[in-house]
Nucleic acid binder design. Structure first.
Lengths: 137, 137
DNA sequence: AGTAATCGTGCAATGGAAGTGCATTTCTTA
DNA sequence: TAAGAAATGCACTTCCATTGCACGATTACT
């Protein structure tokens, strides 16, 4: 039993072959991935399985959704100290207008905002678009 | 010729009947609207026409898109001092988890962020989700 | 005024992605 | 090993954005 399997079990997710592969793929990507990306990476697997795998991972705090404004949902692994499982990890996301990849800037938290009276914040999302470090070089 | 028509012309948009109606509808809404909303408001008009009307308005800096994370694009009128036409009006958007409406908080600008080396910001989007002033009352 | 060219509108159809229902296979556990 | 639960695969459906094409309206030009 490898490290990933142990990790998945610690998150109460049964480490099936498919799930191990998906997790490994996500870990190798340093950018957020769409369902389509993953589908292409595993041509043999069914889209629904991958879809539900991601849903499961999301519920168990293994990945979080990234909405970068492109219209398609992306997923990225949660980091060690990430609070996604309680729906409150407010780090930034960066979307590159050149390579179209989206990266988590985990060390950059969303700044505090003072809302007008009567508004109660429960969650927030912030995406910066521009040129990433690879494309600006 | 009414005020709206004059305004549209100043933006180099021909003030057709349809466009006047759409503009009026948007002006009466104090929240961002989806294409579907507008379609329902004008049952007689074709979806495509409304779609292209909004695209035109957007190009000419009359409305801006709002991506509030619900998955469907919304539109809101640009304000007088809004810099949407140059793609750089960085105000906040607030999405109410109760009434599901999205509001522009035009007076609240997105705070400055210091990105890591190599990253160049060109645009950004920030959405706060929670309870709006009407629903929290 | 008349004609060409441009713009706006409506209809039909496409396409991408999310999501669901159900049957089948695989795994766990008693 | 048998029963039940979980995971997987297949076939659909739905929703929304978007496009191609044809027709009608408006403008520009002579």
């Amino acid at each position: 039993m490898n490290t990933i399997a142990i990790f998945l079990e610690s998150k109460k997710v049964r480490p099936t072959a498919m799930r191990l592969l998906v997790y490994k793929y996500m870990a190798q990507s340093n950018v957020a991935r769409t369902l389509g990306d993953i589908e292409n990476a595993f041509a043999k697997a069914d889209r629904t399985t991958l879809y539900r795998t991601l849903k499961t991972f999301e519920e168990k705090g293994i990945v979080h959704q990234v909405d970068d404004g492109t219209g398609t949902i992306k997923y990225a692994l949660c980091e060690a100290g990430c609070n996604c499982d309680i729906g409150r990890d407010l780090h930034l996301h960066f979307h590159c207008n050149n390579c179209r990849e989206t990266t988590c800037l985990t060390e950059h938290k969303i700044p505090q905002i003072n809302l007008p009276d009567g508004y109660i914040a429960e969650d927030m999302n912030m995406v910066i678009k521009g040129i990433c470090e690879h494309c600006s070089g």
